Amino acid sequence: MYVKVLTVTGSKTLAITCKHVIAPIGEKVFAVLGSDRILYTPIDGDIGKEYAVRVVKGTAWNVTKVKPHKIKDSIAYTIPKNFAQTLGIHKGEKVLVIGKENVLEVIPVNTVIEKVGKFREPTL
């Protein structure tokens, strides 16, 4: 498992750069917009195949193809502009990146903080 807090970079396009590889370099992957995160998955993986069917059926409005590329010893995953706008992700913002096998999730830290909420005493 890969877990890190990273800073969104980019000038013309936004991206995150990490060491978690989900597909061979240069191979396109799906970026899927969720309600609070972006999921990156290989097109030929189990999750990717499910979304490929949705794309063919025309029901996958929240899926786009991106091409991760190598930068030094890391992989850069671009963040589609409309996904960034929907989730309020901007250059310099912190995101929580969680990688599991062939899936990578990018969650804005502000969303994580909101979901954690405030301290509450247990009700007995």
Rank of each mutant, 00 (worst) to 15 (best):
N102Y: 05
D73P: 00
G26V: 03
V112P: 03
V95S: 07
V106D: 03
T17W: 00
P80S: 03
R54N: 03
V63H: 03
P122R: 08
K94H: 13
V53H: 08
V112L: 11
K81D: 05
V103E: 15
K4V: 08
V5D: 10
E101R: 15
V21L: 12
H20A: 07
Y40Q: 04
P122S: 08
Y51E: 03
C18D: 06
V5L: 05
L39F: 06
T59Q: 10
R37A: 14
T123H: 10
I98K: 11
I79N: 01
H90L: 10
K19T: 15
K118N: 15
E105Q: 12
L96G: 11
V116R: 14
K94T: 05
V55M: 11
V21P: 00
T64C: 06
K100M: 14
I107P: 02
T64L: 05
L104M: 13
K118I: 13
G58L: 06
T86W: 00
M1A: 12
V53C: 01
K67M: 11
V53D: 09
L104H: 11
S11K: 11
S35T: 12
T7Q: 14
V55C: 08
V66Y: 01
H69M: 03
R54V: 00
A76R: 14
K81S: 09
H90P: 00
I107K: 09
E101N: 15
H20G: 06
P122D: 07
V8P: 09
